[in-house]
Design a protein around this nucleic acid. Structure first.
Lengths: 108, 108
DNA sequence: CCACAAGTACGATGGCTGTCAAACTTCGAT
DNA sequence: ATCGAAGTTTGACAGCCATCGTACTTGTGG
């Protein structure tokens, strides 16, 4: 197979609808992933997130986020990096991530 | 029983968290109800909404919205009126309803 | 009083989905 | 060439929830 064998498919933001984005963000674990990415301000490997689920479950959550157009994934060695597609999401769904990324009060 | 026997309980916005609001708004039928209320700009009876579910299912959806603090319900005769709690929601979750109520204009 | 209209309450059900363990793959380092 | 680290894949399972029909309640108008 070619060198792109491990690069997963990413949807164009225009192919994603609000329903799919909301279904992705309604899960607390996934919303936490997005929040951590946003707070970090840089790409993060799957294993570096603070989430209380098994690895296989984490894989599932990252997949849902990727298919909803919220993150972009790419490999660096054995690590899978995750990038928040902030600008694209902001353009497609203005204000949504702003309203959901908990810049909110001290604690939720 | 007293005259308030048919008045359902309404939570204070401070008692509702983002998770509950999102769970309410992730359902297309419920989001449509909120959108229709927002577009109408006035209170609407349950039966006047354009939703493709049975009456009992509709009752369920209105209950979820009410318990999430999104709408206020009161009786007028046999009709149950629904009011969008826009201002309170905007204060508790700034930008959220703006991002979800499909005012979605064709941006170029 | 009676019939109807508007909702509510109550199961029952079917599908979806978040969860995990186990086995596997891929890459880097020893 | 081997071992471990990092994720993926698969299959199974449990709990939730949107849905419906039926029966019931409440108010209004004739």
């Amino acid at each position: 197979m070619g060198p792109m064998g491990r690069t997963p498919p990413h949807p164009d933001v225009s192919q994603v609808d609000l329903q799919q984005v909301l279904e992705a963000l309604v899960d607390p674990v996934r919303r936490s992933i997005v929040t951590q990415l946003d707070a970090a301000g840089r790409d993060l490997a799957c294993g570096t997130f603070d989430i209380a689920v098994s690895k296989s479950t984490a894989t599932h959550h990252f997949k849902v986020l990727r298919e909803a157009g919220l993150i972009r994934q790419y490999y660096v060695g054995t690590s899978r990096m995750n990038a928040l597609r902030r600008a694209e999401m902001d353009e497609a769904f203005p204000g949504l991530l702003d309203a959901l990324t908990v810049r909110r009060v001290a604690r939720l």
